[in-house]
Design a protein around this nucleic acid. Structure first.
Length: 805
DNA sequence: AGCACGCCGACT
DNA sequence: GTCGGCGTGCTC
């Protein structure tokens, strides 16, 4: 038997299946989708079995055998293997990359080399520096040596040449399973009592344990906690043979010990009912259809999702729910856990690698029927999918910005087609692409424009910050916002302040000579961080201590302009000293669980003002928030991206939605320097449709999606001349091989011309109908393949870019 | 990707 | 005459 294997070597030249003999003992077990260890050239690598077959086209004398199986059950289902192939094509990526992206990080192999003493060689025979370096078993790992020093590595390499040491490649997967120590009584109850009595005097603690133990095994940790004895006590009982001790494997439960309660289906309003019926009818008929649920904030979309899922589950099928990374706050998880209890697996970035792996295994082992998670959860290995839901469909976090550059929405629809199940896209502010498709009838549009209990939409005020400046208010808070904040503090209601920028100030400028502090590795200005007195690059992480004098002209008129969250926090302390402020941005939420901790603190009344970036725009649903302030609405509007207006409108609408979601009416104050812009004005009217129509006009004018497809080719290298010439040649080739109606922009420098010392150029292709495009792009990659492996030239192609910089 | 093979320059 | 530079090609 022969296995067709994709090896874990990310290179164009190895981007094909290699055939291996399957040794007899593996024959009954090997299945497509399993991971195996195979010899590849001089080393060993992990690989994915694509197919198992009887014969091969390869010269059989060249065939090697599968070395080992990594999985007992296939890691990927047949459907996922097919999906990987589709993804490879769609995203123009290597097959292994597509395959690996479908698995949790813990299942991706890491490679190392073991260095051992050759036979008959003693540690003392080695050169001086290596004499004390080996472990007791006479070996040491390559990485350990490398970490220590380069010279040591050199010494090792010399000894390898001399034959006193030898190396062997090691493939390691990171699948650690959680194991718990348990003990079990080996005595009958009568015997146990007997021994307990005998021990009563001499060893009262042991006696106590014996009496406490039931028939079933118990975790040692739990036993110690319950009986308040020491581990020594348990140990002596084990050595006496009264208890046996062993390890059991279990799933790590990230939500262990938490009580989610139970929720029942809520009564639905008419609009919700209509939506639910439309969705369930497709489930009933096993029909694929994509729904776009355009529901304003508070219209009860989540309840519709929950009941739709319930319907699919009752039909014996499974469901995937995607939520944007950031809104995987406990609130969303709670709602699913309350409704579906232990049927839910949660996959999001705040979980540890091991926890994610365990949640994933629950899906593979069919122990759950619902997967709730961020982007990559779209690859949940279900085999009987009945529904896929993408909440906040417009969110850009559904687009992966590294290979494979896929959009979860496209993958969802692809899987929906294979399973004949509906895909539900939900949003209060759908993406232009989705809404346009819904209007064209490609998707089924469901509108939910009524709020549950008819809670009013918040009142939105737009403040022109230019007027504030004219009337002498130079602070970052308009009179209106400040008054509103004071009012809420008095009423003990909560405030959310939104600012799209972390750090302290946006740039550092010398007032005398105009010097601006820039990153030496990226063409971008540095951000001042007050907390540690540094200037940081938000692209590469470069840091320098803040200059006291201008490095150019020695002047001490160095000033910090623009404001980030840190600065706002400081200003708030000045103008509202009595307010308790909780700041939330990447800097305060870096540690695991801190996101949740800060939110809980705020919810419990531990703060009056929640100040934050992007991450507070979604998912917050606290009844006491009655004021939302947006400090600078236009920051997003001026980025060089055709989605700038769309992003601004979505974000402002999203943030506004945080206010007055319950009984108390909400108010929103939006500060702006360009308040006349339609994407800001229409937030005030809560008018998505007008926004859509206006924006569509501009998209048509600019020949952008959804009218045109866009593909972006990014070229980068450390040598500028090379980048320019390669990009130029690519543009020429595109112009000569694509149709007349296709528009090609570039070569042009990227919006950030240099990152981490690499120059960046790009070419943009805009087309309506270009059946050959994938082929043409593949040709480009093929042409530069050799040069890319030889030099540091990199060409990245994104067939649906969300980041144009 | 990694590693071997192979063909030209500065060294014991 | 050899050691070692990295260009080229292969891995079932």
């Amino acid at each position: 038997m022969i296995a067709s294997v994709i090896v874990d070597v990310a290179s164009k030249q190895t981007n094909k299946a290699f055939d291996y003999l399957v040794p007899a003992p593996f024959i009954p077990t090997v299945k497509p989708g399993m991971r195996v260890i195979v010899p590849f050239g001089p080393r060993k690598v992990q690989g994915f079995v694509l197919a198992v077959k009887g014969d091969t086209d390869v010269d059989t004398s060249k065939l090697k055998a599968v070395e080992d199986l990594v999985d007992v059950k296939p890691a990927l289902t047949g459907e996922l293997l097919q999906l990987a192939e589709w993804l490879t094509n769609k995203a123009l990526c290597l097959q292994v990359i597509a395959l690996k992206s479908m698995l949790p990080a813990a299942m991706r192999a890491s490679y190392n080399k073991r260095i051992s003493l050759a036979e008959g060689v003693n540690e003392q025979d080695l050169s001086e520096e290596l004499k004390t370096f080996f472990h007791k078993n006479g070996s040491v790992m390559w990485d350990e040596v490398k970490k220590k020093s380069e010279t040591l590595l050199g010494a090792v390499q010399k000894e390898i040449k001399s034959g006193r040491l030898f190396v062997e490649p090691v493939v390691k997967s990171n699948e650690t399973k959680k194991k718990t120590n348990v003990v079990q009584r080996v005595l009958s109850t009568a015997e146990a009592n007997e021994h307990a009595e005998a021990l009563e005097k001499k060893a009262p603690k042991q006696s106590e344990v014996l009496r406490f133990m039931e028939e079933e095994p118990i975790a040692v940790a739990r036993l110690l906690e319950k009986t308040n004895v020491s581990s020594g006590t348990v140990k002596s009982l084990v050595s006496k043979g009264f208890l046996t001790q062993f390890e059991v494997e279990e799933y790590r439960d990230p939500y262990e010990g938490r009580d989610f309660g139970v929720s029942k289906a809520l009564p639905l309003m008419d609009q919700q009912k209509t939506a639910l019926e439309a969705i369930t009818s497709t489930v009933k008929e096993d029909r694929h259809e994509t729904f776009l649920v355009h529901g304003i904030t508070g219209s009860g979309k989540t309840e519709v999702y929950l009941q739709a899922i319930d319907y699919a589950l009752k039909k014996g099928r499974e469901a995937i729910v995607l939520v944007p990374e950031i809104s995987l706050t406990p609130q969303m998880v709670h709602r699913f856990k309350e409704r579906f209890g232990s049927e839910v697996a949660v996959l999001h970035s705040a979980l540890s690698k091991g926890e994610k792996y365990d949640e994933w295994r629950k899906i593979r082992d069919k122990e759950v029927t619902v997967a709730v998670g961020a982007r990559s959860a779209i690859f949940a290995p279900f085999e009987n999918l009945g529904m896929i839901i993408i909440d906040e469909e417009h969110e850009s976090s559904y687009k992966q910005e590294e290979a494979p550059r896929y959009h979860a929405r496209d993958v969802a629809i692809e899987r929906g087609k294979t399973y004949g199940c509906p895909v539900i896209l939900g949003s209060a502010t759908p993406s232009m692409e989705s809404f346009a498709r819904a209007k064209k009838g490609v998707y089924n549009l469901i509108t939910m424009d009524r709020r549950v209990n008819d809670v009013k939409l918040p009142h939105v005020d737009i403040v022109d910050m230019r007027d504030e400046l004219k009337s002498g208010n130079r602070s970052m808070f308009s009179v209106k916002l400040l008054d509103a904040m004071k009012d809420r503090l008095e009423k003990q209601e909560q405030i959310v302040l939104f600012l799209n920028r972390r750090g302290y100030s946006t740039f550092v400028l010398c007032r005398d000579c105009g010097y601006v502090a820039e990153c030496p590795h990226c063409d971008i200005s540095l951000t001042y961080h007050r907390s540690n007195q540094t200037c940081q690059c938000h692209y590469c992480g470069y840091q320098v201590t803040k200059p006291n004098r201008c490095p150019e002209c020695e002047s001490d008129h160095i000033r910090f302009f623009g404001s980030g969250t840190q600065k706002v926090e400081e200003e708030l302390k000045k103008v509202l000293p009595e307010a308790k402020v909780i700041r939330m941005d990447v800097d305060t939420t870096r540690r695991k669980g801190s996101h949740e901790k800060l939110l809980t603190a705020f919810e419990k009344g531990g703060g009056d003002i929640l100040l934050g970036t992007q991450m507070i725009a979604k998912g917050l649903d606290f009844p006491n928030i009655t004021l939302v302030g947006v400090l600078t609405a236009d920051t997003m509007l001026h980025i060089p991206d055709f989605r700038a207006s769309e992003k601004t409108f979505q974000l402002l609408t999203q943030v506004s939605g945080r206010a007055g979601r319950h009984k108390k009416p909400g108010e929103v104050v939006v500060q702006s320097y360009t308040p006349e812009h339609f994407s800001i004005q229409l937030v005030k009217e809560h008018d998505y449709l007008s926004f859509f129509n206006r924006e569509m006009y501009f998209r048509k004018q600019g020949e952008y999606p959804p009218y045109f497809f866009v593909t972006l080719i990014n070229v980068s290298a450390t040598e500028l001349t090379k980048v320019v010439s390669v990009t130029g040649k690519i543009a020429d080739y595109l112009r000569s091989s694509l149709s007349e109606t296709t528009i090609i922009h570039g070569p042009a420098t990227s919006a950030i011309p240099r990152i981490k010392d690499r120059y960046r150029y790009q070419c943009m292709i805009k087309y309506k109908n270009e059946p050959r495009i994938i082929h043409v792009l593949q040709e480009i990659l093929k042409t530069y393949q050799a040069e890319m492996s030889r030099t540091d030239l990199a060409i990245n192609i994104d067939t649906n870019p969300y980041m144009l910089m």
